[in-house]
Write a protein that binds this DNA or RNA. Structure first.
Lengths: 170, 170
DNA sequence: ATAATATGTCAGTGTTGTTGACATTCCAAG
DNA sequence: CTTGGAATGTCAACAACACTGACATATTAT
């Protein structure tokens, strides 16, 4: 089968890649990322929130009780930038900010019911497109998709990714 | 939560996808895109350009002589936003702006030698990471990577993508 | 006691996107 | 030939979201 041929190239350790092939991958990333954010963006625009709010909600949902510092290094932004977003989310009653019990300097972040509701709406929109794309492409393609994306990450960000996803494949 | 899923489900034509699996793909996209733009961003920062300049240079290089309108719909931004970027690139002598011969309303955009030089530097940085990731992941994974990304695009953007890449695989 | 850590906040700046309004140039249809 | 519309350029104002730098406040660690 064709797969065997492809794999044999891989076992030789040398994948012949033209600039055209690489350029195509670059453009695929560009166009796909637009689609990736399009659906949540529409919901966010209604509530006059932005992508930064979505990201904060997502990672707080993913790690309830996380600290500000941890969220900072996951998102890779400055505390001033994150603070602007967090302040509005806390004021709007979407995020809870609780003083740590062990270390009272820390603030533990979690979602309120309203926060969970919005996060769900955003995630559902994004997952719907993801699910459709996955089904259209097939399981093997999905496996390859994640493998390449993981290989593209900066090591520092890969750590956060592995920590969140548990390190297992797809 | 269910952990019994494997590729065999693909043969059934129905991919069973948990929210966890989809969430993982979403996070992979987020973290990978950061890596995807990191290297060009460093070069751009030195020259006090931004990502928008990179995108303009890329697509002008890709379709020399393209019109402003075509570039607009490829990039998916307003003409005012693009114009700000184009103006600096033209003033800095990186982009040529020539009145159309057939239709003199149109402006045909192309890169100067200096423009090509910067575009090459940016593209090389981005392709290097892409190449490394491709080699690390293998040919099959690359095929799947592109397949899923293509399935994620909005139909309108997919047209531009197909037009640029010629529609052939990887 | 002092230093370091975790967090919050203020002020300023830059890039990149948005709308809205308006001028110019030019093609094409009446 | 006039008129409508398309393609382009530009001005102004504004918002989101990133940055830096400086400073304040608890709290913990040494």
């Amino acid at each position: 089968m064709a797969q065997g041929q492809n794999r044999s190239e891989h076992t030789h350790g040398l994948l012949f890649l033209t600039d055209e092939q690489l350029r195509k991958g670059i453009e695929a990333m560009f166009f796909a990322y637009r689609g990736f954010t399009a659906d949540p963006d529409r919901i966010l625009a209604e509530k006059s929130y932005g992508r930064a709010h979505h990201r904060a909600l997502h990672f707080i949902q993913r790690s309830p009780g996380t600290t500000v510092n941890n969220l900072l290094s996951t998102l890779g932004v400055t505390k001033q930038s994150l603070n602007r977003v967090l302040r509005t989310l806390i004021c709007d009653g979407l995020v809870l900010n609780e003083v740590g019990t062990k270390d009272k300097r820390q603030r533990h972040l979690s979602l309120t019911d309203a926060g969970r509701e919005l996060e769900q709406a955003l995630s559902n929109a994004q997952r719907d497109r993801m699910r459709t794309a996955y089904r259209q492409a097939g399981a093997e393609a999905v496996y390859g998709f994640c493998t390449v994306l993981e290989a593209m990450m900066d090591p520092e960000l890969k750590k956060h990714y592995d920590q969140l996803t548990g390190g297992d494949i797809v």
